[in-house]
Design a protein around this nucleic acid. Structure first.
Lengths: 282, 282
DNA sequence: CGCGGACTTGAGCGAATTCAAGGACCGTGG
DNA sequence: CCACGGTCCTTGAATTCGCTCAAGTCCGCG
């Protein structure tokens, strides 16, 4: 049987293995981490993939919860909305991250999830997943670790919003992205922001203008270089200290300098943090 | 066999049933919710109780994680600490609340948990609990709902810290306590604060002084009455609107009045929120 | 080339903080 | 019984960090 050329194309690039967890580059970060080939195939059987175009919704607040989603390609943001229409971005998700766990308790989605890029997700029907847990305890255990990690991520966010200055917040934000890209095999010092300044500000409890000012400050301090949305981290050590509240960038009339504090420990502290964060800072 | 009188006392008040989930007044809120008698007994078998004196630690940051804890009697606070020693309170836990879920992923506790009262907890060994999940899917499902609820609670906290004014934060705090006490069968309009103003401020990303000022403001507005730590909510409707950002208390030179906004919807919105929150606002 | 969205920068303002002083309450010990 | 010290809380005045408002720049795109 011959398949028309224009149809064969997607079939060719997505060979059998590539269409499944075992062929996915995120398998060590994502839900199937730790599963053997056989068990991974069990998980594969309940998953389908779905493309989400840039700026369109993966799900919306109030939607019925049927599945979790693992980001395969692209980026998302999730936000809540309060009664008077204010939005608060909860997180930015990238490949390997799991979305929708906040919907498990009420069976309704609590957030909007919007694609920042043209993206692709794995749809994981939740009832079937829970059924699998009974048969695959390793999968269950890893799922619990992922939910726990989500809680830790949000606690870090609470620390940032409750305790840190604008400068520290923004530094922590960059460090978080850096770590997460590193975990995924990308450069920790060169990456692209996928969100607007407005989104960053909203996420960090600041305004767009404040983000702009913080960028200017860190650039003048020669900690980072940012052109448009292309980020280069020039001094990760200093950035870590800044986020930790150990150093402060001082603005003088003539030049900007970094107060070099004694404690090298700050680096160790910040760098020793688990790298496998989900979509929150530090 | 005779038991000396002074030993018999605790044995008498804790009859067989009372020492177990089936005899616990929190069983519909806590982990065993939804289990039948038989399954509840299975859970009972892995649980032991433990008393924690006021101001002492249930666990500390870095402690090895072996068990989750369910509050039976009393109150706790949990806080993180950052590198330079700043603390951030993550939540206040009361009876029926589960502590320690953030430790599942790293097998190390991420917070300090301190008793605010003389308290008692149920110690739930985690490895045995996970083993039970395979046999009791209902228990597993409820556990997932609890973790999801924890995530929602923290997202609400993020909304509060990222988007709300001091006044709104404090109102949301009171409403949250009110709801949680109501769920537990206590008065939603009269209760005692178990924590200092400093703790409240820390939790809400404010200072003790600001909390004091917000109390004064709400008292003058006749929304609440607070003497020491005894709270009486005089106008829950107005408090809800305040937290939602619909009304604002206006301070005039002569008197204080509440701008009465049209939208009664605010009440419905706020009151329709799930009551079963864990230890976070709204 | 002109338009619009995203971003930057400056000036003034305001909410909450910091600093400071004082008050209320509680347990302890004389 | 009251004085004493400590902790917790309140209140006022000055300060500050980040916000609001406003103007202007940059860049991609039709």
């Amino acid at each position: 049987m011959k398949i028309p050329l224009q149809l064969s194309f997607p079939l060719v690039i997505e060979s059998s293995a590539l269409r499944h967890c075992s062929g996915c580059s995120m398998r060590q970060i994502c839900l199937p981490a730790g599963l053997n080939q056989h068990d991974m195939r069990r998980l594969d059987q309940i998953i389908v993939r779905k493309k989400i175009a840039k700026d369109s919704y993966l799900y919306r607040i109030g939607d019925k919860f049927t599945a979790l989603y693992a980001v395969r390609i692209g980026h998302f943001k999730t936000y809540q909305e309060n009664f008077i229409g204010n939005r608060q971005i909860n997180g930015f998700q990238m490949s390997g991250d799991l979305l929708g766990m906040d919907a498990i308790s009420n069976l309704l989605h609590q957030c909007d999830a919007v694609a920042l890029d043209d993206s692709e997700v794995c749809v994981i029907p939740y009832s079937r997943l829970e059924a699998l847990f009974t048969e695959l305890p390793i999968l269950m255990r890893h799922f619990h670790r992922i939910m726990s990690q989500e809680i830790i991520g949000e606690q870090n966010m609470i620390m940032i919003l409750g305790n840190m200055y604008a400068e520290q917040r923004f530094a922590a934000f960059l460090i978080n992205l850096s770590r997460r890209y590193a975990t995924r095999g990308y450069s920790p010092i060169r990456f692209q922001l996928r969100m607007t300044r407005e989104d960053i500000g909203n996420y960090l409890g600041l305004t767009m203008e404040s983000i702009s000012r913080m960028i200017a400050k860190l650039r003048k301090g020669r900690l980072i270089e940012i052109v448009q949305r292309d980020v280069e981290i020039l001094d990760l050590t200093a950035l870590n200290k800044l986020a930790a509240g150990i150093d402060i960038i001082e603005t003088s009339p003539i030049s900007i300098c970094i107060k070099s504090a004694a404690t090298e420990a700050a680096d160790n502290y910040l760098l020793s943090q688990p790298v496998q964060q989900q979509h929150h800072l530090i």
